[in-house]
């Protein structure tokens, strides 16, 4: 895990997206290798790396609950 330059040529006007949140990557990115899948990820910063693992953790928990819902959902429902 480390900061990397995007290192684009001045005439390259394409854009890059964070592999975790989808946000735009400008000038540099935070790179890490997923401990779960071995894939290389390019993301906004360390927060996005933490977000990646938090979402995996949540999904791991959520799969055990019917409908993928967990937590203290209030009884009131719309409609």
């Amino acid at each position: 895990m480390a900061w990397n330059d995007l290192a684009k040529l001045w005439h390259d006007t394409t854009v890059d997206y964070c592999d975790v949140c989808g946000n735009l990557l400008i000038a540099r990115f935070w790179g890490f290798v997923s401990a779960a899948t071995g894939e290389s990820k390019r993301c906004c910063d360390e927060r996005c790396e933490r977000l990646y693992y938090r979402l995996r953790e949540i999904d791991g928990n959520a799969q055990a609950v019917p409908g993928g819902i967990s937590g203290d959902q209030a009884e009131a429902k719309p409609r």
């Binding site: 997206y17 964070c18 975790v20 949140c21 989808g22 946000n23 927060r47 977000l51 979402l55």
Partner: peptide
Amino acid sequence: RVVAPAGTITCVK
């Protein structure tokens, strides 16, 4: 945090 993966309708590529 907002997670909107690129290539979906929520984050156009």
